[in-house]
Nucleic acid binder design. Structure first.
Lengths: 316, 316
DNA sequence: GTTGTTGTCGATCATATGATCACGATGTGC
DNA sequence: GCACATCGTGATCATATGATCGACAACAAC
């Protein structure tokens, strides 16, 4: 029992009055003055009673929504990792998690993107889904799109269709090539250089977070092999962002694979004012956690169980 | 599904925003303007969202107190029986119910009694307890006491001690006498007439409610016998107030016993602006219910299980 | 006793809130 | 096509609320 607790102690009959005041205020919707008249209290006293009631937890506000529990997690994530913002979508049996994350990410961006701004996008299934949902907003607000890496043309095109192409700037190359020398040559291409330097000026970057697991999209799409992933794992990789693998602390590893990538590096990514990551699922817990701890991202959009798991691991 | 319900329907993404607004408002304590800035909404829109959230039950305020459930019962009692006011004290294992009722009644009166007012009091254990707790307030506010019936001198004296006796007016007689003729004679006594006419001018009447049960204080104190009670019961009596027995509808019965009482009748009692009854316990459920239905009382102070039982019986 | 401390109270005032109004967008029926 | 109703929006304004201040009472230390 500390002093603060003692200060909040009260007489039993005071609790009765306090409860009554709270009841009238919240349940009956009376104003503080009306309550004062009924119970022979000054308006200001009623105000103070409500204040005390709230402070001591006598009055409890419950938000009756599946989102309810998520906001606490969001606040926690922001606090723990110094994020600008966290969005947590509620656990739900129905529906694909990635779809719902994409929905949430697109909503976030819709509210954030201003006219004439530029959005740089990374690679991944969630990013693609987000862009599809965003397409209307993009044209409406005249948003420019630019790619952070190669290999995005495949899915960007659907989004870009029907829009003036001058607002969409893609790195005309695959995400990964087979040899370092080829990657160097591509990175030296005028067009590639232009797009990459443009990407550095974007207002926002939207990226996915990949797990170092056999189910990763990088493997599914043929950009990497299982055996490579096994090696990455042994070197301490826990996840990747735009093809760059990092360790538990979120620090990029020194892998040959990285030299064959066509795209921005972490330094350039961090220079973008706000890096927004949308990722979730049990497999990605460590990847997301490391990215957050290393400060690789500014905004995290994830799902409730994943957020829970991330926080629990850092609780100890 | 009625129209009102349809009107309150909303899109899933709207719920997310609504929940978020509510969270910031109630949990984080932000003002509506601050929330508007964060979420890019006009202040007025935030206000309306909160309004909708409250109306559709998304926002639920819980009063975390043993009194919590009681207020609903109070509202119900007031509504069902047209009471000016109802007070329900929470169920509690510890402590005598009558003591706690007396405490509640005295608190109610303390808040209600104004300087120079007059309080008429009936007969019974709860009334006595209430007066004992009130004694300080009575002298402080210069309240006059007057008895509604005979037989109160025994316990009034403790309360009146140390106070100028001119403020206490007792009917100098027992509650019940053995013959109608004696009662008539007593009622004709100048002093008795004076006190009784004074009682009619009281601002408040404080009465108990008795059950027609063998444990009644009337029997315990020797004013009535078990066999009499048996007869009353057969005639339809469910309870008594100031010695007058009434039926299920709260209508006074025509009993010889009443003719032997020294005190006011129901008509005179009802003429007092506010009749306050304090009574509780399982045995008294029917007695209280009938009194309330018959409009015998204006204010009821009882306990939670009793209130519950009373309401349940009238629900059907 | 004085003095300082503490807490409570209500007066005052700046701010937060919600009611009302008028406008414009949208959809509907004629 | 044109009214017409309906809804959402923001502007404006009255009201509700809570922060601040000084006055005052209760109380402890001296």
């Amino acid at each position: 029992m500390n002093e603060a607790y003692d200060e909040l102690a009260f007489e039993p009959h005071e609790e009765e009055l306090l409860s009554r005041v709270a009841w009238h205020y919240y349940h009956d919707g009376l104003t503080q003055s009306e309550i004062g008249e009924r119970l022979n209290l000054s308006r200001i006293k009623v105000s103070r009673m409500l204040d005390r009631g709230r402070k001591m937890g006598l009055i409890h506000v419950h938000i009756n929504s599946s989102y309810g529990g998520c906001f606490a997690l969001e606040a926690r994530l922001q606090e723990l990792y110094g994020l600008d913002e966290a969005r947590v979508i509620p656990a739900q049996e129905t529906g694909n998690v990635n779809d719902r994350l994409a929905e949430a990410a697109s909503q976030y961006l819709m509210g954030r993107l201003r006219d004439q701004e530029m959005l740089a996008v990374g690679w991944g299934a969630t990013v693609m889904g987000t862009l599809q949902r965003l397409s209307r907003t993009l044209s409406y607000k005249d948003i420019s799109l630019v790619s952070l890496t190669g290999g995005v043309s495949a899915y960007i095109e659907g989004v870009a269709s029907g829009r003036s192409s001058q607002n969409v700037h893609l790195i005309p190359a695959p995400l990964v090539v087979s040899q370092e020398s080829i990657a160097e040559a591509i990175r030296a291409e005028r067009h590639v250089v232009e797009v990459m330097s443009m990407a550095r000026t974007a207002n926002y970057a939207l990226v996915g977070i990949g797990a170092v697991a056999d189910e990763a999209t990088l493997i599914a799409s043929g950009y990497a092999s299982r055996s490579q992933f096994e090696i990455f794992r042994r070197q301490g990789a826990v996840g990747d962002i735009i093809g760059i693998f990092y360790d538990q602390a979120g620090e990029p590893l020194d892998l040959p694979f990285h030299k064959m990538l066509v795209g921005l590096d972490f330094e350039a990514l961090s220079a973008i004012p706000q890096v927004i990551a949308a990722a979730g699922g049990p497999r990605k817990v460590d990847a997301i956690r490391a990215a957050a701890r290393g400060g690789r991202i500014d905004v995290l959009i994830t799902d409730e169980p994943t957020a829970q798991a991330i926080i629990e691991k850092d609780q100890a």
